[in-house]
Nucleic acid binder design. Structure first.
Lengths: 300, 300
DNA sequence: AAAATGTTTTTTCACGATAAAAGACATTAC
DNA sequence: GTAATGTCTTTTATCGTGAAAAAACATTTT
């Protein structure tokens, strides 16, 4: 099978949405920019759009002939990259069933189960190893360390260290720095979400990530910025997994964020420290409370 | 070529050294333990030792017939794993010639140059990416971020944060913890090295790593412990690369370590903090001074 | 001549295949 | 009956291969 053309399919779907908005499409390089793909892929997309009667394509002229219908889209599941597919399968195994610490991970078995080649699974595991949940035995299998209470504590310890430092750096940024505009924009979004929390509480996790990434970036330290990937990954699956009191939790968090934003805007280090600490404390509590009792015992 | 038998060759060489010490060899499982390889590999080793007349092997009896000669050993270069070979080649390129930030890294070219398959290079780059020196463009090439002054500063910032915390945790460890014995042992080694610094100064880097890893382990945090891999890697190549005033630098560092050890043994948090800060400061200076002027400019 | 399109080359991504190494099972020795 | 040896099976490490996607080069259009 060698390589799926998910990049093409995903870009095609995104391009279909562009069609609605105008009578004709821009130049090939411009489309490539817009979709984040190469011209080669853009041309494949245009070819198919011509074939299916969506556009008339003659050199620079790309006239839209009709609005896209649902049949025009490629199925969502065909637009995922292999890495995403593997990650999902792996995380399902890791979180859902009894994935005990110490259990060994078999590349071949995983590959067969997911229906992909071993190389892709190997590469995924190598990339995944930086999250601290698995470990390799040289020339041999991987060992699962488990999503335990210990893991959550170690993760939050680093997170707190990094975020306190980043928040302090943020507050010290000059008044004319672009981040203050970004922060204002995020504040508006937070306010809007706070007002409609009853219906939109599930949109919080995405906003949460953007907010914290903005703060971490102020550290100007690649290790701190990169570490947020670990946190984001854990929180992403944690949100999917643990829906208990989601609305209430998010409501509290939004308010904490608003207080945190106000503190940052005051540029008073002491206030920032207090607001940051408060939010981090409740974030830690939320994460810890979501770890099933059974897993706490596996620590040994 | 599929897979080199470097594991076997390396274990064989190490096994030859064991031969000197006794009249006969232990059981197969025991040998496997000793050499860190499976019984399958042990049996291959024993087979060859029998063939070359080094031992007489009959079931449980493995009698040493003669002392190993230099021809019995496999050449050193055949005992390296592919990953080690790739890392060395890559680091040579990165440090030696003008490896400028922003430069793109080509998997295929690297693989051809080193004479290995692309898969191994890909896997190496993925593993290597956690050191923060390279970054992947999705579906495209890797980008070199360069061993710049900015990199060194970001690295040392985290290092200092982590080590101060670990050192404090270390000092707070109970008196009966095993680490105090390890620390005593390291102190003795430091004293010995200090006395013979004129001739043995190049042995410091190995001792340095063991000392700092011991301290970091006291954090009981996998992210802190794992981060030392980044530091160790950089220092490893830094030592190879920059030999200026090596003796003097190491002499100073040994003394700082001894003061640091004394502070830890005092278990006084304030003293630990001072000694740790002092050492970290000079370590940072050493690293920064080794970065060529040309590279500082590439920061932009 | 700058920017687009058309064409060709190169690189990345993913697979199946194969030897090395690990691991499991069966048998023998103490 | 425990622990070793002997044998067989499975898994890991690595390569070559081929399609997808990117990138480079050549040609046309405005």
């Amino acid at each position: 099978m060698s390589k799926s053309n998910n990049v093409y399919k995903d870009a095609f779907n995104r391009c279909l949405r562009l069609l609605d908005e105008s009578r004709s499409l821009p130049s090939e390089p411009e489309l490539g920019m817009l979709l984040g793909v190469s011209r080669t892929t853009v041309r494949s997309i245009l070819s198919r759009m011509e074939e299916t009667g969506l556009i008339a394509w003659n050199k620079r002229n790309k006239t839209v002939l009709r609005a896209p219908r649902s049949e025009d889209f490629f199925p969502e599941e065909e637009t995922d990259s292999l890495a995403e597919i593997i990650e999902r399968s792996f995380m399902r195994r890791l979180l859902a069933e009894g994935a005990e610490a110490g259990m060994q991970i078999n590349e071949l078995e995983l590959a067969r189960e997911i229906g992909v080649g071993t190389t892709s699974v190997r590469e995924f595991l190598i990339r995944f190893s930086r999250f601290g949940l698995i470990e390799k035995r040289r020339n041999s299998h991987w060992v699962l360390k488990g999503f335990t209470r210990a893991f959550a504590l170690e993760l939050t310890e680093i997170r707190e260290m990094f975020e306190l430092r980043s928040a302090a750096a943020f507050a010290a940024l000059p008044q004319d720095s672009a981040v203050w505009v970004d922060l204002d924009r995020l504040e508006v979004e937070h306010r809007r979400l706070a007002n409609e929390i009853a219906t939109r509480f599930n949109e919080f996790s995405e906003l949460d990530e953007r907010f914290h990434r903005l703060i971490h970036r102020a550290s100007h330290n690649r290790f701190i910025v990169d570490f947020y990937d670990v946190i984001a990954m854990i929180f992403h699956y944690h949100y999917q997994w643990n829906k208990a009191q989601e609305r209430q939790r998010n409501e509290v968090a939004v308010q904490e964020h608003l207080a945190y934003i106000a503190a940052l805007k005051s540029r008073d280090p002491a206030k920032v420290d207090i607001a940051c600490r408060k939010h981090l404390k409740s974030a830690r509590q939320t994460l810890l409370s979501s770890i099933p009792e059974g897993r706490q015992a596996q620590l040994a």
